[in-house]
Design a protein around this nucleic acid. Structure first.
Lengths: 204, 204
DNA sequence: TGAGAATCTGACCAAACGGTCAAATGGGAG
DNA sequence: CTCCCATTTGACCGTTTGGTCAGATTCTCA
């Protein structure tokens, strides 16, 4: 599936530069809205030179998406079945929110792709992503059955965490437009979300 | 801002047909990804005929967006300061989720637009949308101060409702990919979200 | 240093795109 | 029926887009 890894020093540098520039452009305009010329200009390379390193526009996009999937799933992977249930889940919320703050382009890249039907990563969703979510949902479900957290559907609990945290990256414009210029959405969001999830999860 | 209302019977019918087809196409592919030919084919009209009713592709898009904003805000408008606080907010969650279920194309149209910076509706966000949100946030804030709901930042509470409900429309592919074929995401989501918000909001 | 491979570029191409226009067709009021 | 205006269309245009290619330049290593 992946191309053979870059060999030479120049290849390593330029594929990196291209992917960085492409992340900028794709996350801002979506796949169809981005043009090779934009990516070329952003990366400081000529258009034919892009196509020397990647066989097509779509190949750049796919390379970005599959490279990101791992990073994106990492916080969930860290959810520890042996830890304190509420702390673990709230910690996951906090971690996911920080990723939205620190990697908004990555978040928007995924959002763009999935909103439009995820034609290029549907198999990854139904494969490794589903597997990991099912595994962690089982852990959370176990906590719920043991009465260590309030009883909530674990899959939808995870969805809600994704939704609420990525919202601050994907809908950044809307959030800032409503809050006004003075506020820092992310620090406010961290206070709100940790309090909110803690209250919803603590058993009574 | 708006064009003069359609006069003749044919005008009324065809502008409707066009907007319906355009909603399909724009919500699936985004503004840049949609083409006039696609909209023409979906509406059963010829491309020049589209441009007889709308001056440009962008005009169709803007017409859709501004026509939708009102519908989209309606559930929030219905939040009653005189009702029971928890019931009102949970009722809003339920209403918003049903809109996501019944009007997923509209939700995705907004999502596409906002993810990419909302270039065509930023003023509506900072204007009437912000005004309505501020008004309702004040109501919720009052409930919190009176101890009738748990203390949560009202603006971010509203954001979380938007995020969790629209998630089921905007990220439908992902949700179904993870849940598998058997489930009905929306009825599961309603059970989860009402329980979750009730628990997070009820004062102790 | 020199030869061969790797890297880079200007010029170019075919298709797709948003949009125009003159002319043809259709509907409806008198 | 007729005339006029609304509606519809095929043909066309200039631009943008993803991608190609032959050749120039640079790098690497024996």
């Amino acid at each position: 599936m992946t191309e053979p890894a870059p060999k030479t020093r120049i290849q390593k540098k330029n594929t990196g530069v291209i992917l960085e520039a492409a992340l900028d452009v794709f996350s801002q305009h979506g796949f169809r809205g981005a043009t090779l010329d934009q990516i070329a200009q952003a990366s400081g390379l000529s258009k034919p030179n892009l196509l020397y390193y990647f066989p097509s526009k779509e190949a750049i996009h796919i390379s970005l998406l599959s490279g990101l999937m791992d990073t994106w799933l990492d916080p969930l992977r860290r959810l520890d079945p042996g830890g304190d249930p509420v702390d673990e889940i709230v910690g996951y919320v906090r971690l996911k929110l920080r990723m939205a703050r620190d990697y908004p382009r990555e978040s928007r890249l995924f959002a763009n792709e999935i909103v439009q039907g995820a034609p290029r990563i549907l198999d990854q969703i139904e494969g490794p992503l589903k597997a990991l979510v099912d595994e962690k949902a089982a852990v959370i479900g176990g906590w719920a059955e043991a009465g260590r957290i309030a009883p909530h559907d674990p899959h939808h609990l995870i969805f809600s965490i994704w939704a609420t945290t990525q919202h601050y990256a994907d809908f950044d414009v809307q959030v800032r437009g409503i809050l006004g210029g003075g506020a820092d959405p992310f620090s406010e969001a961290e206070a709100f979300l940790t309090g909110f999830y803690r209250r919803a999860l603590e058993p009574r």
